[in-house]
């Protein structure tokens, strides 16, 4: 390494550059926070959606499934499950189908991955479905490429 670059110079480049890039990052994140907050004006986060998110967390759904591609890759993507169940065409049908699906677990079929039975009331299932419906309406830049998730 060239002798013209001293240790002190390397240190100053590190600190100065880090502050510079971190400030740019904060600026962009701040802008993205405003757009992310604006999502809630067109697609309001009702108390039911918020409650549904807590139910999603209480049962650690993300440690098997993925949501917007993040999670455990063991079970299907649920960010667009509302669309996959036909929620855009028939909201009532999709809601009933999703609730019936969750109530039917575990299937007990040998050789098939098992979803545990969760003690979720009917009202809570509605909230969970509201959360999944809300999630499906996020602008994800057209991800996933196929409705299969």
């Amino acid at each position: 390494m060239s002798e013209t670059l001293t240790k002190a110079a390397a240190r100053n480049i590190f600190y100065g550059g880090t502050v510079f890039f971190f400030l740019i990052f904060i600026g962009l994140v701040a802008h993205s926070v405003t757009t992310a907050s604006a999502i809630a004006t067109n697609n309001p986060i009702t108390p039911s959606v918020a409650a549904g998110k807590h139910i999603w967390e209480r049962h650690a759904c993300i440690d098997c499934h993925t949501i917007l591609g993040e999670g455990a890759y063991f079970a299907p993507e649920l960010g667009n499950v509302w669309v996959r169940f036909g929620g855009k065409e028939s909201p009532d049908g999709a809601r009933d189908a999703l609730k019936a699906w969750m109530k039917a677990q575990p299937t007990g079929i040998a050789g098939r991955r098992q979803m545990p039975h969760f003690a979720i009331t009917d009202a809570e299932l509605d909230q969970l479905v509201d959360f999944l419906k809300w999630t499906s309406e996020i602008n994800t830049q057209n991800w996933p490429p196929q409705v299969s998730g």
């Binding site: 590190f14 550059g17 880090t18 890039f21 971190f22 740019i24 990052f25 962009l28 993205s32 992310a36 999502i39 917007l68 591609g69 993040e70 996020i138 602008n139 994800t140 830049q141 991800w143 996933p144």
Partner: peptide, 16 residues
């Protein structure tokens, strides 16, 4: 850090 801080962006592609 010059690459990694803004590299966070690769997690911000499809999450809204």
């Amino acid at each position: 850090l010059f690459t990694g801080i803004l590299g966070t962006g690769h997690h911000y592609y499809w999450i809204g």
